[in-house]
Design a binder for these strands. Structure first.
Lengths: 142, 142
DNA sequence: CTTGAAAATCGTTCCAC
DNA sequence: GTGGAACGATTTTCAAG
């Protein structure tokens, strides 16, 4: 379903999500028409879930944080994944092997909003504990 | 430096990093020309650090992980930030307030490559310990 | 899969406000 | 700062091999 050409296209778009079809085509040695068709297929099939701008959150006034979550024994990760979807501040949700069980990345306007998200999570009654990591500085490979 | 129009443009590009200038312009009630100028400024000034495709990693064979890092006392986070830049598997680097001190997100092809990255970090002699979280499942808000 | 070309859309630049 | 028009580039779709 995804051959090496697809993976090359994906790698290119990972580095530059706004790369033009012509740029990608030159990189992977295919015609622009072929790349256009493959892109449409990768997007339709869900391998490419979307595109996003990488923002320097420290410069637009917000607050970025991670929350580690330990689940109660009988709880399914899917339940918390769905709950987290309903919290708009949560941008990314990871179910991980290790301790903690879950890791979420979020963006809020200020500390009060952060406190609200943490409380919202704890009030679900599905989690044993949380640990919040506030981002002071970061870089993302472009 | 960033007014409400800029923030609207950023919000749009966060949702859809490949949105056309025309689409953004319609959304924020500006002309395409104005959006184009603002975009160039936001990219030049570093508020927009880049663009990337959001990939469903479970469908392209790789392995995604987070590594929590605790630094030794006398070490500066900048040193480790620079070191991490030299490890191509590391995609994102976060200096956080809390325990751990650092959090990195990475992508590798297999467990051996993951072990190599962990060893590479430990061998720097700058860190007191690591904890690796392997991503089993995830979602990202589009 | 490819090439080539047409048609539609898009981005940037320039100019006037 | 803004919008409108013009121009060049890009994407997509088509036909044909």
């Amino acid at each position: 379903m995804t051959d090496s050409a697809d993976r090359a296209i994906i790698a290119h778009l990972r580095r530059d999500g706004r790369a033009t079809v012509a740029q990608i085509a030159a990189d992977v040695s295919l015609s622009p028409a072929a790349v256009s068709r493959r892109l449409a297929r990768l997007e339709r099939s869900g391998v490419i879930r979307g595109y996003t701008a990488i923002i320097d959150d420290t410069r637009v006034g917000g607050l970025e944080a991670f929350i580690e979550i330990r689940m109660l024994g009988a709880v399914d990760a899917e339940q918390l994944a769905d709950l987290a979807r309903g919290i708009p501040q949560i941008l990314e949700f990871y179910n991980v092997a290790g301790d903690p069980d879950l890791l979420v990345r979020l963006r809020v306007d200020d500390r009060e909003e952060l406190a609200g998200v943490v409380n919202q999570l704890r009030r679900t009654g599905l989690i044993a504990g949380t640990k919040t990591l506030i981002v002071l500085n970061s870089w993302i490979r472009t």
